[in-house]
């Protein structure tokens, strides 16, 4: 791929042309080739290897979560535009006939569906906090979890690095402010070294989440002023606006307060997470090293295939 003139659309077309991604008719939802999945799998092993000394507890949640949990988490305050709730039909035979009639007439039949108790998981760690809170007080040394989930964000785009359904791998540290910030610091270093070992250009910068609306501008400014979010950026679909492939977030005691995560002495827990955008890292590798993984630089291949 000609990296000098790449755009989001040309990158996407090139991924389709090389049978790395497959169209589905919806922007941001793509089929993945076997090779693409293999790259993700090997990158995941690399993450596992780097995180192994920390002995995290692994939990795999499905890509849907309790809607009540999403509501309580405050997600709708900050990101109503990204959330997705699952709706299903629960009517009788008459309603069914009406539904089919509306569908045949090209009318909006979705009003005959009702919200279920399931919402799509927007970030791998959202289902974790109530699960931890239900287990009682957090031990003095804190807790560390390793999570992986498909996540949904409603932001249709022809930028392949902005998918609507994508996988996020996360380590989540719950503990004192000092413990969780030390964890984040260690991953800022490990994450950068890891991406550099793959022969990818990157930089770490302070960042903010895409909070909704004008109030969101203030939330974003607050987040930046306090240095709560850092991102590791790699040029993927644009050189000027590199893509966040890893993010390092300090939540202060937000989730501690929301879910009553406390130590035995009653003091609130802080939390921090490091997230790996798995598709984004894979896209960065294909974008910089080319569509043929056998022809990737030996150093990057050694890290992914031989270790």
């Amino acid at each position: 791929m000609d990296t000098a003139t790449i755009t989001a659309k040309s990158l996407l077309d090139s991924l389709f042309d090389n049978d790395i991604l497959f169209e589905t008719g919806v922007d941001g939802l793509y089929g993945r080739s076997g090779v693409f999945e293999e790259v993700i799998e090997r990158f995941q092993r690399l993450v596992t290897r780097l995180g192994a000394p920390d002995k995290a507890t692994a939990i795999h949640f499905p890509p849907g979560m309790s809607r009540a949990t999403l509501e309580k988490s405050g997600y709708m305050k900050s990101f109503p535009q990204l959330a997705g709730c699952v709706h299903s039909f629960s009517g009788n035979e008459r309603d069914h006939a009406k539904l089919l009639g509306m569908m045949a007439a090209g009318e909006d039949w979705t009003e005959l569906q009702q919200a279920t108790e399931v919402a799509l998981t927007p970030a791998a760690c959202y289902p974790l906090y109530p699960t931890v809170a239900a287990r009682g007080p957090v031990p003095d040394e804190g807790l560390l979890f390793e999570l992986s989930s498909y996540c949904f964000r409603h932001e249709p785009s022809q930028d392949p690095a902005r998918m609507q359904l994508f996988r996020m791998r996360e380590f989540v540290r719950i503990g004192t402010s000092d413990q969780v910030r030390a964890f984040r610091e260690s991953w800022l270093e490990r994450g950068k070294a890891m991406i550099e070992s793959l022969g990818l250009p990157c930089e770490v910068d302070v960042a903010n989440d895409p909070f909704f609306g004008r109030g969101g501008k203030m939330m974003a400014n607050n987040q930046r002023d306090q240095g709560l979010k850092f991102e590791l950026l790699i040029p993927v679909s644009s050189v000027e606006k590199p893509t966040a492939c890893l993010s390092f977030n300090y939540h202060q005691d937000h989730f501690g307060q929301t879910w009553g995560l406390k130590f035995a002495d009653g003091s609130l827990c802080h939390s921090a997470c490091v997230g790996f955008g798995l598709e984004r890292v894979a896209l960065a590798l294909f974008r910089h090293h080319g569509p043929d993984v056998a022809a990737w630089p030996a150093a990057a291949r050694a890290v992914l295939w031989e270790a």
């Binding site: 203030m218 400014n221 987040q223």
Partner: peptide, 27 residues
């Protein structure tokens, strides 16, 4: 909290019938 400050910001805009420009939407 940050979110409470957003609620206050919106309430002030309504009370004083004004709108904060982006440069003023800071901590």
């Amino acid at each position: 909290t940050s979110f409470a400050s957003v609620q206050i910001m919106l309430a002030i805009e309504e009370e004083f019938d004004t709108e904060f420009p982006e440069r003023m939407l800071t901590r």
